[in-house]
């Protein structure tokens, strides 16, 4: 027996959520599928593999004011940004929810990032289990899975005429009123089978492969368009700048990519990572070597977005495979 919510009740419920808080869900924008703030539930897309951009935007916006500087009568005051409204994200995939949990490691590590924590505290995740596998994803090799309930507040799994609802946290309980749920004799469809990527022991292999010419050869075709970082749920590097063009001064944080040529350039022109090979190696080493060393978990959750988006087919699945098979010189 499972808890069940009919499609009709789901729409009613989402409509209610929309009234009391920001409701964010997958929508179609031109030919992209994006998480957007919902004004009418009819705009929500239910049938999709995964969104073009990850949901990280809702925890860590591509550009966000950290604080405002107000200067009046020779006095300066700093006014930190405050997130007022609660948000519910509907339709987040288990892999992306895992991605947000990965971002918690650096952002919530003490001293925690204040804005990120506010977003995280004020946001509830209503996950949607994957019924079919997308060709590029490999989440079950990266610590998550298509039906993984670990990082959402509520997990919905589509069945005939409605959804099986697993209410997993207190946040979830507060969101979904009991009276919308019924008990039904339905069982979850089998989880789709995803392509396997040999991730076991990858951190150690990445360490051994670190000084291999492999990275330079691979990076040769990278055009540092940065789209891999842009679409990735777990790329979290940032830049900080002051802007004065509006009424008051603001300090703004924005996404940055380790693939962009000036990423590590310091005053005087010195750039410790001046080659494309060293920058490409940084992206994959951060996810598969440094992050595991720092936080004990892989920094890629296998959503496959960078695989789909890269214009020159640089493919993290192939990289993992190749690195596992590299005959490292020191071993030869």
């Amino acid at each position: 027996m499972s808890e069940f919510i009919s499609k009709k009740d789901l729409l009613t419920w989402l409509g209610q959520l929309m009234e009391e808080r920001n409701l964010v869900a997958p929508t179609r924008v031109d030919d992209l599928l994006l998480f957007s703030k919902i004004d009418q539930v009819e705009d929500i897309v239910f049938d999709f593999d995964n969104t073009t951009l990850s949901p990280k935007e809702w925890f860590y916006p591509s550009s966000e004011t950290l604080f405002y500087v107000e200067q009046k009568d020779g006095q300066t005051e700093l006014i930190p940004a405050v997130i007022e409204k609660e948000t519910a994200i509907f339709g987040i995939r288990p892999c992306d929810a895992q991605g947000m949990a990965m971002n918690d490691f650096p952002f919530l590590e003490e001293p925690a990032d204040d804005l990120y924590r506010q977003h995280r505290d004020k946001t509830a995740l209503i996950g949607l289990a994957c019924i079919t596998a997308c060709p590029e994803c490999f989440c079950s090799s990266m610590g998550s899975g298509p039906h993984d309930p670990a990082n959402v507040d509520i997990l919905l799994t589509e069945v005939a005429d409605g959804y099986i609802a697993q209410v997993l946290t207190d946040k979830g309980k507060a969101l979904l009123p009991d009276n919308l749920l019924t008990t039904a004799d339905v069982s979850s469809p089998p989880a789709p089978v995803l392509s396997e990527v040999p991730s076991d022991g990858i951190a150690e292999k990445m360490r051994q492969a670190f000084d291999e010419p492999f990275w330079d050869r691979l990076a040769d075709r990278c055009i540092h368009c940065n789209i891999c970082s842009y679409v990735c749920p777990t790329c979290y590097c940032f830049d900080v700048r002051d802007y004065t063009d509006k009424e008051r001064i603001e300090r703004v944080r924005s996404w940055e990519s380790c693939q962009s040529p000036g990423f590590t350039r310091i005053a005087g022109g010195h750039d410790p990572r001046s080659t494309k090979g060293s920058r490409l190696r940084q992206r994959f080493s951060h996810k598969l070597l440094y992050f595991p060393r720092q936080f004990g978990a892989l920094g890629c959750i296998g959503c496959g977005r960078c695989v789909r988006a890269c214009p020159v087919n640089i493919d993290i699945r192939e990289i993992i495979q190749d690195v596992q098979q590299l005959e490292v010189k020191s071993e030869a």
Binding site: P106, Y236, C237, F238, V240, F263, R265
Partner: peptide, 19 residues
């Protein structure tokens, strides 16, 4: 060592040398 820095907290991931 020097590095480009935006946070000082190990969060912006700009100043890493390896891990």
């Amino acid at each position: 060592l020097e590095g480009k820095m935006k946070c000082g907290l190990g969060k912006c991931a700009r100043c890493n040398v390896g891990d």
